[in-house]
Nucleic acid binder design. Structure first.
Length: 275
DNA sequence: ACCGCTGTTCTCCG
DNA sequence: TCGGAGAACAGCGG
């Protein structure tokens, strides 16, 4: 999402939106299409909060954007097609920015720019490690109260925002902490390692995609760039032990059983009032 | 050809 | 309230 933001800022820089048009799909979340097609002019600001983008256009109009699973912004030239293009920004330099999204889990919801931060889904977001900074203490305060397994708690956008399934697994691997650990059981040193690992995971992801057009995991890459995600059955990149996977809250979690030992894991479901 | 997976929320139940 | 299951949707690989 941060790469998408940087691309959009660059593409819009010094240019004007001369025409916005789109297909009427669920990405507009029921809003009237004219609220989108009325957008025009300069992009005055583009702020990212977690996985959301807050667009502010000249004239006070705005958009709340989210890529969902398969959404992406791509730049094409006028007249050039783009598969699964759902909405298009025509710029005054002959380029067209497409919001392309096969599964349409993404969102491009028109709203007055001044109100974007007040939308419920935005207000509900926790601290953003990249935009706000994150200390070990802040991470602990946000995540330790969760009764969920640690990886699930890290993906809870109301605690800290921005981590999805891949980055949560990658951060836990870097920190050497098992994804099923009970958040309240982490030591001060583990919180410190985890916050550093989150930062390293984000930095790695940014560096990895720097200057690239948005790509899917499988496109344009011969090889999985992640340390543990998607490597089930294969050797751990650090110790060679076979990587394992299991399901947490409906998502697949990958981890190395040796680098991320099971000590301190949830017994199962901790019951209140145990002694 | 079918089945089971997929960088994400959101709602509906128990 | 919290947490799990299923839904929204379409493609891809085994």
């Amino acid at each position: 999402m941060e790469i998408a933001r940087r691309n959009l800022v660059r593409w819009f820089s010094g240019r004007r939106l001369v025409r916005a048009e789109a297909d009427d799909t669920r990405i507009f979340r029921g809003a009237e299409l004219r609220h989108f097609t009325e957008l025009s002019g300069r992009l005055e600001s583009l702020v990212r909060r977690g996985k959301y983008l807050l667009f502010a256009f000249e004239g006070g109009r705005g958009l709340l954007g989210h890529l969902g699973m398969t959404g992406k912004f791509v730049r094409r030239t006028e007249g050039q097609g783009e598969p699964y293009s759902r909405a298009r920004f025509h710029l005054d330099d002959g380029h067209v920015l497409h919001f392309s999204d096969a599964r349409m889990f993404g969102r491009l919801e028109p709203a007055p720019a001044a109100q974007l931060r007040e939308l419920d889904v935005v207000k509900a977001l926790g601290r953003d490690p990249l935009a706000d900074g994150l200390t070990a203490g802040q991470l602990e305060k946000a995540v330790a109260p969760s009764r969920q397994p640690l990886k699930v708690a890290l993906m809870d956008q109301a605690r800290i925002t921005g981590l999805g399934n891949i980055h949560a697994a990658e951060a836990l691997f870097r920190a050497g902490i098992h994804p099923s650990r009970e958040p309240a059981s982490l030591s001060p040193d583990e919180w410190k390692r985890l916050v550093g690992a989150i930062r390293a995971t984000i930095d790695f992801g940014l560096k990895e995609q720097e200057g690239e057009e948005p790509v899917y995991l499988e496109e344009g890459r011969s090889e999985n760039p992640f340390l543990v995600y998607g490597r089930a059955g294969g050797p751990c990149s650090r110790c060679g032990t076979p990587v394992e996977s299991f399901t947490q809250a409906g998502r697949t979690t990958h981890f190395c059983p040796k680098c991320q030992p099971r000590s301190g894991v949830h017994a199962s479901k901790p019951r209140a009032g145990k002694r």
